[in-house]
Amino acid sequence: MVRKFFVGGNWKMNGNKGLNKEIIQTLVTGPLDAGTEVVVSVPTIYLSEVRTALPKSVGVSAQNAYKTSKGAFTGEISPAMLKDIGIDWLIGEKVGHALEEGLKVIACIGEQLAEREAGKTTDVVFRQTQAIAAKVKDWSRVVLAYEPVWAIGTGKTASPAQAQEVHKQLREWIKTNVSADVADSLRIIYGGSVTGGNAKELAQEPDVDGFLVGGASLKPEFVQIVNAKV
């Protein structure tokens, strides 16, 4: 099965009306590879604005949501509210409820530096994946993001070989513990200091199906990352 390349841009706690317009213009101008699924994850306060401004070919994701549909939870937002303003994706831990509410989920896993140095990478990511798998009935609406904690916002990136090794092991785990069909179709993407400079090399690895991009998603080089497979 050919898995469609997936690039998510996680703005985290960044953005303002001026910067948002610049990023949106960059995405609209592109050109973006039509063979890549592109989703940007935006701070809650800007979700509606960004969804309205971007073409439907670019998905918009929330970064988090509460684990119930409504109630007396001051400051929280629910998956039902996200759907109401046209948001289709969620990055976060509330996998089961988000899927039940009809959202698609980018589920993030990854080890800390001490865990990698202790040779516990697979122990950690398998345990995290098991917790996610226990709440998933429809894997077609899930993207699994391997984000080694030691590479997030540090400038350190897993080498293509390191990323491929973990992605391959994760796919084998899915094959053994879920099904061969899910293992074949599930997109496993890499996150951790991805840039326009390293994206093409990482994208050549057979089990790297895309990226979850942090800081570089706020810059014009994000287009290069989206087009890494071209």
Rank of each mutant, 00 (worst) to 15 (best):
K4L: 08
F5P: 00
G9I: 07
G9T: 04
M13S: 10
N14Y: 12
G15R: 15
K17S: 09
G18I: 14
L19K: 12
K21C: 04
K21I: 05
I23E: 04
Q25H: 05
T26Y: 14
T26L: 10
V28F: 10
G30D: 07
D33Y: 15
G35I: 08
T36A: 14
T36F: 12
V40I: 14
S41I: 09
S41P: 00
V42T: 02
V42Q: 04
P43M: 12
T44L: 15
T44P: 01
T44I: 12
Y46A: 04
Y46R: 01
E49R: 07
E49W: 14
R51M: 08
P55A: 08
K56R: 09
S57P: 05
V60I: 11
S61C: 15
Q63Y: 14
N64M: 12
A65W: 09
A65R: 04
Y66G: 10
Y66I: 07
K67H: 13
S69E: 13
S69T: 12
K70Q: 07
G71W: 13
I77P: 02
M81W: 06
M81P: 00
L82A: 04
K83G: 14
D84M: 11
I85A: 10
I87A: 10
W89Q: 02
I91D: 00
E93L: 13
E93F: 13
E93H: 13
K94A: 15
V95A: 08
H97G: 08
L99F: 14
E100F: 03
K104G: 03
V105K: 08
A107K: 04
I109Y: 05
G110T: 05
E111C: 02
Q112H: 15
Q112Y: 11
Q112W: 11
R116C: 02
A118S: 14
D123T: 05
V125G: 03
T129M: 06
T129G: 01
A134S: 14
D138A: 13
W139P: 00
S140M: 09
R141A: 07
V142Y: 05
L144R: 03
L144T: 01
P148C: 11
P148E: 06
V149S: 01
W150C: 04
T154R: 03
A158V: 04
P160E: 00
A161R: 05
A161S: 09
Q162C: 07
A163T: 07
A163D: 00
Q164T: 01
E165S: 10
R171N: 04
R171S: 03
E172S: 12
W173M: 02
K175I: 01
K175F: 07
N177W: 11
N177I: 06
A180C: 02
A180K: 11
D181V: 15
A183N: 01
A183V: 03
D184K: 12
D184H: 08
R187A: 06
G191C: 08
G192D: 01
S193N: 05
G197N: 15
N198Q: 03
K200R: 15
K200G: 02
A203V: 13
A203M: 11
E205G: 15
G210T: 10
F211H: 06
F211W: 11
L212M: 14
G215T: 04
A216E: 01
S217D: 07
S217A: 13
P220E: 05
F222E: 01
F222M: 06
V223N: 00
V223T: 07
I225M: 14
I225P: 12
V226D: 00
N227I: 13
K229E: 05
